[in-house]
Structures are given as structure tokens and as C-alpha cells.
């Protein structure tokens, strides 16, 4: 495969409020490639959104990227470690939006109600490109057209509250693409949308990715969306990537007990009507009360006392790109 456009190694993003410490992301590693989609899946509190925000260096206080590296191959070929940059410095501002576009879950709160959507898209263009007002407006209309907004010449002058949820999310995607980034981070881009609108938005992301060879990070709790979109998958639980691999292996040969349990417990339209679901016992622990050892051990069906509750399991490489953190697999093979 080609060289990665972004490499995250052992990322640690911690929150240190007065009450203690929350290891929101605790040693995540992954690579992004042009034209490919990495799906990051997990339940609430697993650190998937903080991972995205760490890459963009927009982690809210009292959170901070405290370790690891995020190496970006810039458009001129230079390698830059984002962790080493000043989060409000010129280079980071250039990368944010310019090289890495992002779409968040809430299109309503991410768009301003005071400016027309055209103004907002034009602002994003002006931030990164030297163009005249007229060029920016034409470019904005073109972008709105690209993301499938009907009658873009008119819609460019509408306000976000005049648009439906699906159209707003399309505007968000237009904003993210305004400066022609090479990476798109989409954090639960379709969670607030109806299923038919979700299908439209996923189709749109796929189409644009193909046209522009974008590297996409798709963050979601929805295994269905992952199965639909991702090439590679990282499964997160309480700040750690417990398993990562090609999408087909994750769904058809999952190795980590959490991945296996998660896949068994999701409702499916293919199931028998009124069939009971397999469940994962218990619930996600409070961030201040993380279990020692493997954090999944109190809910795990394969719990080995004296082992799983002692030290965190190291990563074991199963095949070229399939990795798992679980004591069931080859002890201490990798770090």
C-alpha cells in the first residue's frame, strides 16, 4: 500500500479535572491512506471523538494531548508532528480545514444562525485560499452543488435554520471541503438524521471520497454504518483500541471478546422477528473507576482471574493488519 498520509502513534489524551484523571485516549495508533476509509467504532466514553479532536488539536480543557505522535504528510511532502505544534499557531490553523476537513454530529450547533450559509462557506475558502469575493462566491455555489443542495444559486443566501437536518449536514460537508483538504474526519455525521437521509449523506461522502481520493476517518457507534463504509476498522473501548483490522475480518473473524460481543448484541433487520439479543453484562464503567488490567475484564465472558485484572494486555499482531489487545492471543508477542 502507498505511504500513509497520517500516522497516529501511541496517542495519549488525558483530562485532568480536579477530581482525578481521565485517560480519554490511552495509546491509540492507526494510519490513514488516501482514498480509504478508517472506521473508528465504540460506545460512549470510548474516546473515539477525543481521538478526532486530538488530531485537529481542538480538545476542550481540561483535556490535553500528553503523549504520542500524529505525523501528517503535508501536501508538499513534509512530515509534521501535529502534537508538537502550537494549537492556535499558524501552521495548525493552516492544517485544520486546509489539510484536514471535519464534520461533526450536530449540524445545527456547528453552523452560525447569523450568517448565510454562503457567507460561511466563503469564509472557509478565504481562510485558506487567496481569491476574490466573486471567485469565493462562485466556488461556494459550486461546493453546494457538489454536495447535492438543490438550487445552490439561491440557497447560497439562505440561513441554516431555513434548511432541513439533511441539507444542513450537506452544508457542513461543503464547509469541510471548502479548502480542498486531503483528509476528512466525520464524527457521527449521520447520527442525528433519518435513515433515508443517512443513506444520502453516506453516498455523498463515498462519491466525494472517490473523486478526490480523500482519506476518511468515520467515527460512529453504528456497526451498520461501519460495515457499509469502512475499509479498515478500529474498535475502541475505554480509551484503547482493543482490535483493529480489515473490515471483513472484523465482522467475520472478530477476535477480541468485546468486538465479538458487540457484534452479537446489535439488532439487525436480518434477525428473526422478536428474537432475543445476546447481551454484554453490566455497563460501561465510570471514567474515574476504570477496572485495573484489561478494562473490559468485568464484562468479559473469557475473563481469566489473576491475569486480565493485573496488567493491560499488549497488542498482538494476528496478520499483516489485524491486531488485538487480549490475553487470549499469543502472550507478549508485540509491545
Amino acid at each position: 500500500m502507498a505511504e500513509p498520509i497520517l500516522s497516529v502513534r501511541n496517542l495519549q489524551t488525558y483530562f485532568r479535572p480536579d477530581e482525578g484523571i481521565v485517560r480519554a485516549v490511552d495509546g491509540a495508533s492507526f494510519d490513514l491512506y488516501p482514498g480509504r476509509t478508517l472506521g473508528i467504532v465504540g460506545e460512549s466514553g470510548c474516546g473515539k471523538s477525543v481521538t478526532a479532536r486530538s488530531i485537529l488539536r481542538i480538545v476542550d480543557r481540561p483535556g490535553k494531548v500528553e503523549g504520542g505522535e500524529i505525523v501528517l504528510r503535508r501536501h508538499d511532502g513534509r512530515l509534521v508532528d501535529i502534537v508538537g505544534l502550537d494549537e492556535s499557531g499558524a501552521e495548525m490553523r493552516d492544517i485544520r480545514g486546509g489539510e484536514i476537513g471535519y464534520v461533526f454530529q450536530e449540524p445545527m450547533s456547528s453552523l452560525s444562525a447569523f450568517y448565510t450559509i454562503g457567507n460561511q462557506v466563503m469564509e472557509a475558502i478565504h481562510l485558506h485560499k487567496r481569491v476574490t469575493e466573486k471567485e469565493a462566491r462562485d466556488r461556494a455555489i459550486e461546493l453546494l452543488h457538489l454536495v447535492g443542495i438543490p438550487r445552490p444559486e439561491q440557497r447560497v443566501d439562505s440561513y441554516s435554520f431555513e434548511l432541513s437536518g439533511g441539507l444542513r449536514q450537506r452544508v457542513m460537508i461543503a464547509l469541510a471541503l471548502a479548502a480542498e483538504p486531503r483528509i476528512l474526519i466525520a464524527d457521527e455525521p449521520t447520527t442525528a438524521l433519518d435513515v433515508t437521509t443517512q443513506a444520502q449523506i453516506l453516498e455523498l461522502i463515498r462519491k466525494i471520497q472517490e473523486e478526490r481520493k480523500l482519506a476518511v476517518v468515520l467515527i460512529t457507534h453504528d456497526m451498520g454504518v461501519i460495515a457499509e463504509m469502512a475499509d479498515a476498522v478500529s474498535v475502541m473501548y475505554l480509551g484503547k483500541i482493543v482490535e483493529s483490522g480489515p473490515v471483513d475480518e472484523i465482522f467475520h473473524a472478530p477476535k477480541h471478546p468485546y468486538t465479538q460481543a458487540l457484534l452479537r448484541s446489535i439488532p439487525s433487520v436480518l434477525a428473526e422477528p422478536r428474537s432475543r439479543l445476546a447481551t454484554i453484562s453490566g455497563s460501561i464503567p465510570h471514567p474515574y473507576a476504570r477496572p485495573p488490567g484489561c478494562t473490559f475484564n468485568p464484562r468479559c465472558g473469557n475473563f481469566m482471574p489473576g491475569k486480565c485484572d493485573q496488567a493491560p494486555p499488549p497488542a498482538t499482531t494476528l496478520s499483516a493488519d489485524h491486531e488485538v489487545r487480549c490475553f487470549l492471543y499469543g502472550e507478549g508477542v508485540a509491545t
Binding site: 443513506a199 460495515a227 457484534l263 446489535i266
Partner: peptide, 12 residues
């Protein structure tokens, strides 16, 4: 159309 839009948790 509704049924067709539901993502199925199987990449195959």
C-alpha cells in the same frame, strides 16, 4: 425504500 436504507452490519 426505508428498508433499503438501513445499513446492514455485514460488509459482504
Amino acid at each position: 425504500a426505508l428498508l433499503s436504507a438501513v445499513p446492514v452490519p455485514d460488509p459482504r
